[in-house]
Design a protein around this nucleic acid. Structure first.
Lengths: 208, 208
DNA sequence: AATTCCGGAGAACAGTTGTTAACTGGATGA
DNA sequence: TCATCCAGTTAACAACTGTTCTCCGGAATT
């Protein structure tokens, strides 16, 4: 199945990835709208003009970063929501999964949180599109739950968006607590758990 | 009581405000970390060096903008939460208030949403501090409600943060729908209403 | 009336930016 | 083997950046 890439294409993808990595690192302490093309090429160790062989602009690079950061996350979100077990267990598992993801890919999480409302329109658009996809996928999983019997499609989507937003808020809190003592991370876990618990309670009494 | 400002101080405050206004306008399509000092002075119609008479840096200007955007909002939030009436009425009133605020000060709302996770640390810090204040104030108002009987302080603060975050999410949605047809704004209102309703339901069954 | 104060102007600094054009040299395909 | 392709290079462009120092003129103080 897998077509082995020629030396040429392999090398190109390698430098392209180097651009993405370097940009992500630089974006830890600034926003995409202030990221310079030369700044990135300097970090990669390559001539400024080489940038154009891969991206039309830094905005274009940003869109590619959105795909890298969120594109591979769909299966994880899907399985997280559809996981079985007690409501309380599911909440704990979801939050732990978020915490682990933030630990593993802090720069990606920071990038999404930062650029979701950032100054570069195409990037905002790309993030919004991915989040809408998340919400729709969550909705599909929620619909499978017996608790969703009698729920309208609109209400299911409403709840799905609530979950997606809550996921982002929690991820952002874990990010802020990354270098903080364990005590602080525990506080975030507690807070997020209680909030999800309240939403879960509201969910189970929605049709009353 | 009010000490009439001298011609000099009055003029200084006037140009200072011109800086804030110009910066806010420029920040509609970029982030603070990419806002140049010269860019702002050009927009105001003043020499670049004049900037230093008012701010140490653009980050400093950003902090001032945070105060302008959120500082005067506390009484409004306080009264919104403590307003009397049916739960459904309160939700509708709160959302309408948010919608009106976004209409009246779209640039301020955009600035806060953008820089909350933006690339300038002192500004992030300033926003976070104000949001913590909001949450604490909301907590105090929630505690007065008879429904809060038996609630722990921690749970009240948890709920308060949920409300504050929800307020920002809703404001951001109204912002995106600003130039959209009335139909879209109505969809946002519906969504936000249902989400607040679910939270309200969860709240009333919290102690079950 | 004389003096100090101070917001803003002007000029100059070294460094940076995005983008263009023409080139090089190794991988690719005939 | 030879011609083609193309990722990356070099050089140069005008335009822009933050910051310093020196100066001006009107308000404020004495």
């Amino acid at each position: 199945m897998s077509h082995t890439l020629g030396i040429r294409q392999a090398q190109k993808q390698k430098t392209r990835q180097a651009f993405l990595d370097a940009a992500l690192a630089l974006l830890e302490e600034q926003s995409l709208s202030s990221l310079g093309l030369r700044e990135v090429t300097r970090a990669v160790g390559v001539a400024p003009t080489a940038f154009y062989r891969h991206f039309r602009s830094t905005a274009d690079l940003g869109v590619a970063l959105v795909d890298e950061a969120l594109g591979s996350l769909h299966p994880m979100v899907r399985t997280t929501v559809s996981t079985t077990g007690d409501s309380e267990e599911r909440i704990a598992r979801a939050i732990e999964l978020i915490a682990r993801h933030v630990d593993a890919y802090p720069a990606h999480v920071r990038f999404i949180a930062r650029e979701r409302h950032g100054g570069v329109q195409p990037v905002r658009e790309a993030i919004r599109a991915q989040l809408v996809r998340f919400a729709e996928e969550v909705k599909v999983e929620l619909a499978k739950d017996p608790e969703a019997a009698g729920w309208s499609d609109e209400d299911l989507l409403m709840l799905a968006h609530l979950y997606v937003d809550q996921m982002l808020i929690t991820a952002s809190l874990f990010l802020e607590a990354l270098e903080a003592p364990e005590e602080e991370r525990e506080r975030v876990t507690q807070l997020a758990t209680r909030q999800l618990r309240l939403i879960s309670i509201g969910r189970s009494h929605w049709l009353d």
